[in-house]
Design a protein around this nucleic acid. Structure first.
Length: 489
RNA sequence: CGGGGCGUAGCUCAGCUUGGUAGAGCGCUUCGUUUGGGACGAAGAGGCCGCAGGUUCAAGUCCUGUCGCCCCGACCA
């Protein structure tokens, strides 16, 4: 973390280091300074502070309404999983074993059977589904849970990698493979929609390679965002689990043809890591730039008072009250600080709009509205809005901020996506973290491992082959799909 | 789990080489003046120097152990 220091050249006290060249230092500083998180006195865990929790609540709100719209219900399952249950699906256990934490004692007594703290909930939910599902008439089961999970990570960073993290995990059961596959793809589309239309983070959606697949899944899909340092960030996954879990946990039903069959299950999750993607994608040297739909505070009033004359502050409170009644999330900052200090503070914390009201504005009956997505002095960064038009104009401006942030991030993604056909160029771009490197790929695990060993890059996800008959750019074998390669978080 | 760094005031750190009264800036409290891009003055509060042993007349400083944190890799959402 950098020390706040006075810089006489620009009159600002720098609270965070510049975003480039050390994205990592910028990221950690901004998460702490903007009061999203605090480190907790527990290794690898963070406290989500009110402002950070506000981000999480908005993520929940928008995702949850999409889940409901696609027919899902929320439920809650236990945190602890008996060891004997966990070990039934072989690949799943193997995949998660290194990072499971165990409860071995209760009170003073050693437990006869260890209890795992859930690293994910396929197991406990599968066991319950086995009890609940009898008939094809009980299907599909479409349940989501908002929960915390724990994975014993070696190294941690706010949002991107913490031992305990918040997420949602959807778990569904279906009568047919086709229906399960459609569910998996539908939820992938929901995630892409959320990422782009709420968090304003453009992503590539596609299929994971075998080596990147979720332990126990038949097929894993993901959305992948690109960070400013050229590394990719997996932002959500959706898994078609086939009958792997239903066979391990004996989830059966009697079908219309009177045959006993195993159900097909899916699971899909997005975690608070998405917040990390959003922070890195949009932030700048002044700090956070939060997309309006995710912003705990959409607009902050900064009244400029003169001596004993509190007129500006009174007006700000009056307008804020009216805006709240119209559904806006606004705050009035009438703390005893200079306006300049407040401007810098709220810019650092990423509030999309700032509304300045001073003596001049009181006279003219209008306020200055300043957009966080634009740079100082940029065209349209600052507009004067009559008090009685604020309610209508704020909605427009917030929409514009969203679009502008999304377009900026999209332009970055597109300018850092390279369709490459030359092998040397492919390796060079992978090594230098140029961005998303798009190639026709053979799909072989050996090929992927070889690229990883030589460059650090892996496939992020794949899509159908774009040009029939193409050869794998990495190894020359016949290509089967198009794949994005990148180094990843 | 490998490689590197760091634990001293709320924060960022100096002090350790060469042992001898616990320091700075920022922040915080009070009062006053201020407020259109990170204001100014005055007065204050605030420390088991990560923890445990050891050496010494004396340890923030030297020795041993231990715990924790950060960064870079490998692994994961």
């Amino acid at each position: 973390m950098s020390e706040p220091s006075r810089n006489p050249d620009d009159g600002f006290v720098k609270e965070i280091p510049p975003k480039a060249p050390d994205l990592s230092a910028w990221y950690t500083a901004v998460c702490l300074k903007a009061e999203l998180v605090s480190y907790a006195p527990v290794r690898g865990c963070v406290v989500l502070r009110p402002y950070g929790f506000g981000l999480w609540e908005n993520l929940q709100k928008h995702l949850d309404e999409r889940f409901k719209a696609t027919g899902h219900e929320n439920a809650y399952f236990p945190l602890l999983i008996p060891e004997s249950l966990l070990t039934k699906e072989a690949e799943h256990v193997e995949g998660f074993a290194p990072e499971v934490a165990w409860v071995t004692e209760g009170g003073q007594e050693k437990l006869e059977e260890r209890l795992a703290i859930r690293p994910t909930s396929e197991v406990i939910i599968g066991v319950m589904y086995a009890k609940w599902i009898q008939s094809y008439r009980d299907l599909p089961v479409l349940i989501n849970q908002w929960a915390n999970v724990l994975r014993w990570e070696k190294a941690t960073r706010p949002f991107l990698r913490t031992m305990e993290f918040l997420w949602q995990e959807g778990h569904t059961a279906h009568a047919s493979a086709k229906e399960a596959r459609e569910e998996t793809e539908q939820m992938l589309a929901v995630y892409k929609d959320f990422a782009e239309n709420v968090a304003a983070v453009p992503v590539y959606a596609g299929v994971k390679s075998a080596s990147e697949r979720f332990p126990g899944a038949v097929e894993t899909y993901s959305i992948e965002a690109l960070m400013p340092d050229g590394k990719a960030l997996q932002s959500a996954t959706s898994h078609d689990l086939g009958q792997n879990f239903s066979k391990a946990y004996d989830i059966t039903f009697v079908d219309a043809d009177q045959q006993i069959k195993h159900v097909y299950t899916t699971s899909w999750g997005m975690s608070w890591r998405m917040l990390g993607a959003m922070i890195m994608a949009h932030g700048d040297d002044r700090g956070l730039r939060i997309p309006p739909k995710m912003a705990p505070i959409e607009a902050v009033f900064v009244p400029i008072v003169r001596g004993e004359n509190r007129g500006a502050a009174d007006k700000a409170h009056e307008l804020a009250k009216s805006l709240r009644a119209q559904g806006y999330r606004v705050r009035v900052d009438d703390r005893d600080q200079t306006p300049g200090w407040k401007y810098a503070e709220w810019e650092m914390r990423g509030v999309p709009l700032r509304i300045e009201i001073g003596p001049r504005d009181l006279e003219s009956g209008s306020a200055m509205v300043v957009r966080r997505d634009k740079q100082k002095g940029e065209d349209g960064a600052k507009v004067s809005v009559p008090f009685d038009e604020l309610g209508a104009r704020l909605r427009e401006l917030l929409d514009q901020v969203h679009i502008s942030l999304f377009e900026q991030a999209k332009a970055f993604l597109e300018s850092h996506t390279f369709a490459v056909s030359d092998r040397d160029e492919f390796f060079e771009k992978c090594r230098s973290r140029a961005g998303m490197i798009d190639i026709p790929w053979c799909g072989r695990a050996e090929c992927e491992a070889s690229v990883k060993a030589q460059t650090g890059a892996t496939t992020r996800n794949t899509r159908p082959l774009q040009k029939a008959g193409a050869a794998c750019v990495a190894c020359g074998e016949p290509a089967k799909v198009n794949a994005y390669f990148a180094q990843s978080y």
